[in-house]
Amino acid sequence: MPDLTLYNYDLDESCYKARLLLSFLGLDCKIVAVDVFPGREQTTPPFLALNPLGRLPILTDGDFVLTGTEAILAHLARAHDPSERWLPMEGEAFARVMSWLTFSARDLDVTITARQRSLFGPPGDETSLVAASRRLLRIMDEHLLARGYTGEEWFAAPHPTIADIALFPAFALSRDVGIDHDEYPALRRWSRRFRGLSGFRVMPGIPEYF
């Protein structure tokens, strides 16, 4: 049995991605609740010792400490998924997973910022963040639409991968910033399939049924 610990905040969508994969893989993991709001506990010395950037999630696997959502997903899949389905190793599927993980880490950050501002921040003008979020969701929607033309239903492989996990919360939580799902039919169908995966878990803000 692996000795896994996740430093977690329930309302954080990046932590949710790690929780999702742990659940899909059926892994036992100790969950340590971190008081992010209002406590900002992740920026106190004990947590800065684990991640000097002061961010969650943090995963420990035995003595190994790992930070960065995409790296955590990749590590869990590589080290604890013998089927290699969640992180396929063969040519194009692997490259496509990497490409969407990069998109998630670099571009989808905007959707996280938009949501944090509207949930926790002072009232302000989120218009440009929301417009940017819409553009990103449209890129995702049209990628899946085009893959659907050849019968593909997931982002990177003929089955779900950590790319789908990395992308799911941005769409599922988009209503928090006022982006309805009406205009993303391919993402809607994908998110229904995603919710139907065995081991799927919700987080606050994502309704159980859809």
Partner: peptide, 16 residues
């Protein structure tokens, strides 16, 4: 208000 295949049997979607 939608392409027919965009709303799968057993599902619902909002439109305007």
């Amino acid at each position: 208000v939608s392409l027919a295949h965009s709303v799968e049997p057993g599902s619902a979607a909002g439109v305007r």
